[in-house]
């Protein structure tokens, strides 16, 4: 019972103290131009590893599929 009571008190304290928190470490203050610049740069660079992996993976997959098709065509009498 005491645990529930203190749990409710803690929840109320959290709810009634309106403190702004930055949930995303990548997001900067967008009011300033330098903040917008950093933001665009971070998002651009964050996207790049996914692009590279997709490029290499896509190319390997494409060549694997093409080689499989060629092999099937050769095996068919």
């Amino acid at each position: 019972m005491r645990l529930v009571f203190w749990g409710v008190v803690l929840m109320l304290v959290v709810l009634i103290v309106p403190t702004c928190l930055e949930a995303c470490p990548a997001c900067k203050d967008l009011k300033e131009p330098i903040g917008r610049g950093f933001n665009s740069s971070i998002f651009f660079m964050m996207a790049m590893p996914f692009t590279v992996v997709a490029l290499i993976g896509g190319s390997v997959f494409y060549h694997y599929r093409r080689a499989s098709k060629n092999r099937d065509r050769t095996d068919t009498p």
Partner: peptide, 23 residues
């Protein structure tokens, strides 16, 4: 080419900071 893309993305990222950070 993946490594080259990462190199150029870093340089382009730096350019974006300066380009958009200046009015």
């Amino acid at each position: 080419l993946g490594a080259e893309m990462m190199l150029f993305s870093g340089l382009i990222g730096a350019f974006l900071v300066f380009r958009m950070g200046n009015i």
